[in-house]
């Protein structure tokens, strides 16, 4: 979908929420849900930052690290991809204290989801780096660059472009899996909705609002990624059409 239709959708969803915010049936739920949405957003954004960091580190370690580091990165990716995010959250929240490490629920949420998505992201980063044609590496050797200089200046900037669409997917996945944190005592959007639903039984307005709020956030992510992609491919795309 193009940027314009995406923006139109986002606008429509925002307008719908705004209209509900002033209507009688919906109005009382909006402030509480917005508070939940704000927490959801914070967890999602910090989780994304951690996920990208972990993904790049793990991918580089797997590709170019010395053996112990490679092994460590492999273990990280397989463990966090191979077990459920919910179990990881529970483990961090309920099991770690038995080993003397008690973390705030918010920290657990960010770390748990960030590590989980980072494990998937590591494969995205690795794939994008491996997708760069050998000729680019050869040119850096001919220019006497070190491997690190080559990665930083030549390989990663190009791999970055290829990573943007799959990262968009992962960010949205991360946003949606924040709903899991309601199970470790956090008052996120999903948690608030359930709570209100149990006390008021107004299922239709509550979950309609929640749906729209998640949609607004994920559309915002999609639009940001599209803008990023457009910016990143500027030099490349211009020529392709020429």
């Amino acid at each position: 979908m193009g940027l314009y239709s995406l923006s139109a959708m986002l606008l429509a969803a925002v307008v719908a929420i705004a209209i509900m915010a002033v209507s009688e049936t919906f109005a009382i739920f909006v402030p509480g849900l917005l508070q939940g949405a704000w927490l959801t957003l914070q967890i999602a954004l910090l989780g994304c930052v951690l996920a990208v960091t972990m993904a790049v580190l793990a991918a580089l370690a797997r590709l170019y690290g010395p053996l112990p580091l490679r092994w460590l990165a492999n273990t990280y990716v397989e463990v966090f991809r191979g077990t459920s995010a919910l179990v990881q959250l529970f483990w961090l929240f309920f099991v770690l204290p038995h080993f003397g490490l008690t973390l705030e629920p918010f920290t657990v949420a960010v770390v748990g989801l960030g590590l989980n998505v980072g494990a998937y992201g590591a494969e995205v980063v690795r794939g994008a780096i491996l997708g760069i044609v050998p000729g680019q590496w050869e040119a850096t050797v001919a220019l006497n660059m070190t491997r690190w200089q080559a990665l930083r200046r030549v390989i990663l900037p190009q791999a970055f472009v290829a990573m943007i669409p799959p990262w968009g997917n992962l960010f949205i996945e991360l946003l949606k899996s924040t709903a899991l944190v309601s199970l470790i005592t956090l008052g996120d959007l999903a948690f608030r909705a359930q709570q209100m639903n149990q006390t008021t039984m107004k299922t239709i307005p509550i979950f309609t609002l929640v749906l729209l709020m998640y949609l607004v956030m994920s559309l915002a992510i999609t639009i940001c990624m599209r803008l990023l992609e457009r910016r990143a491919t500027r030099g490349l795309a211009r020529g392709r059409s020429a």
């Binding site: 000729g135 680019q136 050869e138 040119a139 001919a142 220019l143 030549v154 900037p157 190009q158 472009v161 030099g235 490349l236 020529g239």
Partner: peptide
């Protein structure tokens, strides 16, 4: 220094 058959310029 080397020049390649397929140029291998940095496209970005």
């Amino acid at each position: 220094g080397m020049v390649f058959q397929h140029f291998n310029l940095f496209p970005h």
